[in-house]
Write a protein that binds this DNA or RNA. Structure first.
Lengths: 338, 338
DNA sequence: CTGTTAGCGCCTTCAA
DNA sequence: TTGAAGGCGCTAACAG
């Protein structure tokens, strides 16, 4: 029952040559209608299946796409991947997923593996400061597309959200509700564009509303609940305590809220808190958390489409790379006043 | 800069033959130390990289493993995949992920694609009632391993948790805390083993404590927050209202709690609620949700190990398939009394 | 120890 | 319209 039927088997049975079988199977026009039908019938009957490995070797195209994310078990990345998959599966691609765990070395290794596997393209939300590994991808002439976390590189398409706008709208939302002493938690490596931009949006919003930027109101942490608690400890040991917190991560926002409540500080009445990413749990809580939606599913679909477009459009000529920027959306919930 | 160096290029440069190069590269003992060193040096210098596609075609082994899950963007499956990946990447495998969306047809299509891609094995948390597609995998002599949601098939290893025990301990926990009118929500297709088993555990616990099984206390839903709310609507329109709910899904448990609270029913004082899966959000809530932990990371790692073992152990002879059953753990939180 | 040959399964010129 | 031949890159069997 093991399926090892090749075009040679079909050819033999039909007393023709493998080349003809190949032609029939691939819709090559230089073949008589009759032979084509015969071949197709035989192929079906013999339960023939094209060996994609042979095809890949021959054509140099594997129909596999590599996707690298920091981690898979978060709603944001899970949804992006889902979007990519939906779009790409329909076109006959499979996706190979790698996790970098926010580690530059691991990411480099993932890239290595994917190149080795001859993927047709790599989509990445990069955790690297250096672009060395990424450059390798380009050197191999493998299309590279950034999503969410991009780096500045030539000839590389990207799909991101406008993190500056996200930071701005979060901060403005706090300001509009009357907050003036707004802290910001940079909940990830400041080297990454996304955090820089969110921070920049924060700064700009303050400036536009004539609020001084205070260095002691800006903290750097990792993205975890624990770190959110610690951040509050630090912020509330200051002489002048903040009346609002804009965290670049929902998890940190949650930790902050928990610590505030533990200290008997009322959210949002005394301190407003807003997060980033719209992870589902933010909506589950009794005190639901205001946040910024990044439309991950849409992002994933867009990444896939950008790739497909630039593949088919290549001959048209020239630079087809594209920088798509999606607009984030403020989701106002109970952890902030309105 | 495009890297197209083959063993022929190396051979040519060194005035030897490709076969010798291959031998040197693969640690074949039949070769002089001197040539080996020369080849290795040249390979490094020329930045040679083995073409895995050619290797795959030649050997019939792709070093890709297909993984099929209902959906990827849930903590449970995300973590399982993470566990699989950790273990398998280290051994040079890549994993290809497919989502079935709980749809039998989609799952069949995924299987088809993976077979076509010549994956070395398929790991699946199956959503199918029929085993037809799964049988195809076996017909192709591709190792198949179930995790979480298994089906009864010969020659197939599986890694699951003891869902019966999970259902039993959840129910017993409610009974121990004084509940007697315990409802059960089967939050998924009853055709799936996992739900049958959890239900059986529920029944057994009732029986062991001399509590009658009431059909009107057992509901079937999908796994969503909305369905949890609806379930409460139905249960609390009964004459004799339950004093506890055991849901086979955390999401449904959450919905149920929200609806109960909306109705002014105190959780856990008037009604206790326990879920299943230990999704992270269950611990984030102010009223944290009691649940059953399934150790997804461990499950993923185990699946990978079972595969690796049965691959290497094959020669040893005979049936190496294995049924691993992990023990779940009760996580008592605030949504139940203790 | 090394070279020659053949083949994994497919596609694609070049001839006929 | 079809056949013959060669090659994608690698490995393994058989000679020498």
């Amino acid at each position: 029952m093991n399926n090892k039927v090749t075009i040679y088997d079909i050819a033999e049975k039909l007393n023709i040559t493998a080349a003809t079988v190949s032609r029939a199977l691939n819709g090559n026009p230089n073949i008589s209608e009759k032979t084509r039908e015969t071949v197709l019938a035989a192929a079906k009957e013999m339960n023939y299946k094209q060996n994609k490995l042979a095809l890949a070797l021959k054509s140099g195209k594997s129909n596999h796409i590599g996707v690298i994310v920091p981690r898979i078990n978060t709603n944001f990345f899970g949804s992006v991947i889902r979007g990519i998959e939906e779009e790409l599966n329909a076109k006959g691609y499979n996706i190979i997923i790698c996790q970098s765990h926010n580690d530059e070395e691991m990411e480099a290794k993932n890239i290595e593996t994917l190149i080795d596997s001859h993927v047709d393209a790599i989509f990445i939300s990069s955790s690297s400061k250096s672009s060395a590994s990424l450059q390798k991808v380009l050197d191999e002439k493998i299309p590279l597309i950034f999503f969410d976390r991009r780096k500045i590189m030539n000839n590389v398409s990207s799909v991101t959200i406008d993190d500056f706008a996200g930071g701005y709208m979060a901060t403005k939302h706090l300001i509009d509700s009357g907050c003036r002493k707004i802290a910001h938690i940079i909940s990830g490596p400041i080297e990454l564009e996304i955090f820089k931009e969110r921070h920049r949006g924060y700064q700009q919003a303050l400036e536009d509303h004539n609020i001084d930027y205070r260095k002691d109101y800006v903290l750097r942490t990792n993205s975890s609940i624990e770190e959110g608690k610690r951040a509050v400890e630090i912020l509330f040991s200051l002489n002048e305590k903040p009346d609002a917190i804009f965290s670049a991560s929902d998890f940190v926002a949650l930790g902050a809220i928990q610590e505030l409540q533990k200290r008997g500080i009322k959210v949002p009445d005394e301190v407003s808190v807003i997060g980033f990413a719209n992870e589902p749990f933010t909506d589950f809580l009794e005190l639901s958390i205001s946040t910024i939606d990044q439309f991950p599913l849409e992002m994933g679909r867009t990444v896939a489409r950008v790739y497909l477009n630039q593949e088919t459009g290549d001959e048209a000529g020239g630079n087809v790379q594209k920088k798509v920027v999606l607009q984030p959306k403020l989701i106002a919930r109970k952890s902030t006043r309105n």
